[in-house]
């Protein structure tokens, strides 16, 4: 990844935050607006530095470590949340499986689809990289 790609990713993140603020304001979801603003401030303060004009190997290493940490935190959270959203619905006892809380089951399904998608992407990426970098050929 070079400086151009680095700037492109920064632009995409900034665009996503701005869009989420605008959409949440239009739909009057003020909690989402506040969270988007907070995330935007956090991103600008901690990550988006004016000094990052040189994109070198240390920057790549930092990004890889940050990505690893994010994924190792994000996927289990998503997977556990997915099953937690399903269990009340399966038991048919909880108030969460009825009426206005029925959407939780759908949310659980979406989370499971997302986790499955991420596992598939991870497996494919690993396979492609393994072929590029070199398999362990036994002779």
């Amino acid at each position: 990844m070079n400086l151009k790609n680095h700037n492109k990713i920064n632009f995409n993140i900034s665009l996503f935050i701005v869009l989420s603020i605008l959409i949440s304001l239009i739909l009057k979801i003020f909690l989402l607006t506040a969270l988007s603003l907070l995330t935007g401030i956090l991103y600008l303060a901690l990550f988006h530095s004016k000094n990052k004009k040189i994109y070198d190997e240390r920057e790549v290493s930092l990004r890889q470590k940050a990505t690893d940490f994010t994924f190792s935190l994000f996927i289990p959270t998503l997977a556990i949340s997915a099953f937690l959203f399903f269990f009340p619905s399966l038991s048919q006892l909880s108030v969460f499986s009825k009426g206005e809380f029925e959407y939780l089951e759908s949310l659980g399904s979406i989370f499971i689809y997302l986790v499955l998608f991420l596992i598939a992407v991870y497996s494919i990426t690993y396979f492609v990289l393994l072929n590029q970098i070199g398999k362990n050929h036994e002779k």
């Binding site: 000094n51 990052k52 040189i54 190997e57 240390r58």
Partner: peptide, 26 residues
Amino acid sequence: LAIKVGVSRQTIIAIENNKYLPSINL
């Protein structure tokens, strides 16, 4: 030194302080 090897000054600082292990290329 950072300009000569094509990295940021922060990278040189990190290497000097043993906070970052450079690649074989660097």
